[in-house]
């Protein structure tokens, strides 16, 4: 019998990452995702070039620093959340559930490797594939920005790209946790998209507008820093707007209708995203460790 070296978990994580990335890179979904990004970028490029909207290129006479911020705010800020959510769902949504549904887990798991090494390796591979998508989108926006505002890249854009990456990390942890929860790939992908695209948005609105409580527990609230950093003035943490007199009840008292909106500060937003990353990564791993390969 041949001599076999005991392989360390770090080395095994590297192996899982490499082959999963290769699998992602060759899979149709990577190119579908790439196609979606290129389509969004192409539409932006063509429409901005043809219509030259003021929301992107600024009002004539406006300071360039404001106009350039407006361009990145509209082009990058308007779409990056969607790109992050779709990437996380595409690459993370079925990463674990697929091992059960597609039975690839039967090839991988009954080997001298901890499930945690498989989980971490797959997570890193998904992060690498998603990061490529986000960076391609950033590069296209940057190329457009440099075309309209040569040599003028605001520091806020650089920070926004970094925040978007942190959001991607947190969103991937969330989708991996969902992927560990369900055995069906379709359900885990769908749940991830619905949750990130709709449910958290509703929670944010209901929590702040209806109840007046800061939605500090919501990932999309924390991710607000990705776009808010591109505002000429960072929005205030808490803002209450009053709307005229409202007839209230039989006494016809003059009641005021107030709407409170919250915006996470940069440290708070980063804190929320990092906590999401840690908690969801541990939850997903815990679920995967306990999940059984039953037919």
């Amino acid at each position: 019998m041949s001599t076999k070296a005991r392989v360390g978990s770090l080395s095994q994580i590297g192996t899982i990452t490499r082959y999963n990335f290769l699998n992602y890179f060759r899979a149709r979904r990577f190119y579908v995702m790439l196609g979606i990004i290129l389509l969004i970028s192409l539409l932006l490029t063509v429409l901005v070039g043809y219509y030259r909207p003021v929301s992107f290129l600024g009002i004539p006479g406006e300071p360039v620093s404001l106009a350039v911020l407006g361009f990145y705010g509209a082009g990058w800020g308007g779409f990056i959340s969607l790109v992050v959510i779709i990437s996380a769902a595409f690459f993370g949504g079925d990463a674990i559930s697929g091992e059960f549904q597609n039975r690839t887990g039967y090839f991988l798991v009954p080997n001298p490797i901890r499930r945690s090494a498989i989980y971490v390796g797959k997570w890193i591979a998904a992060l690498a594939a998603s990061t490529i998508i986000v960076l391609i989108f950033a590069a296209i926006i940057l190329a457009n920005g440099l075309y309209y505002f040569p040599g003028n890249v605001p520091w806020q854009f650089e920070q926004s790209v970094a925040f978007a990456w942190v959001y991607l990390v947190a969103a991937l942890s969330l989708t991996f946790a969902f992927s560990s929860l369900f055995k069906s790939s379709a359900i885990s992908i769908l749940m991830s998209v619905i949750l990130l695209l709709i449910v958290f948005g509703v929670i944010d609105t209901v929590s702040s507008v209806v109840v007046g409580i800061e939605p500090w527990y919501s990932i999309t609230y924390g991710a607000g820093i990705v776009t808010n950093i591109l505002s000429p003035v960072f929005p205030p943490h808490m803002q209450t707007q009053s709307f005229g007199s409202v007839l209230g009840g039989a006494n016809r008292t003059n009641a005021r209708f107030e709407v409170t909106t919250f915006n996470a500060t940069v440290p708070e937003g980063l804190e929320i995203l990092v906590i999401y990353f840690i908690v969801m990564a541990l939850l997903g791993l815990w679920l995967f460790e306990r999940k059984e390969f039953t037919s």
């Binding site: 290769l22 890179f25 090839f107 490797i113």
Partner: peptide
């Protein structure tokens, strides 16, 4: 009847196992 990652070749899939198994 396990399934193998569909985008890998047999050589790559077996290489992955070789690395995992030392």
């Amino acid at each position: 009847t396990p399934e193998i990652y569909s985008a890998l070749t047999p050589r790559e899939a077996l290489s992955m196992l070789c690395e995992i198994r030392g």
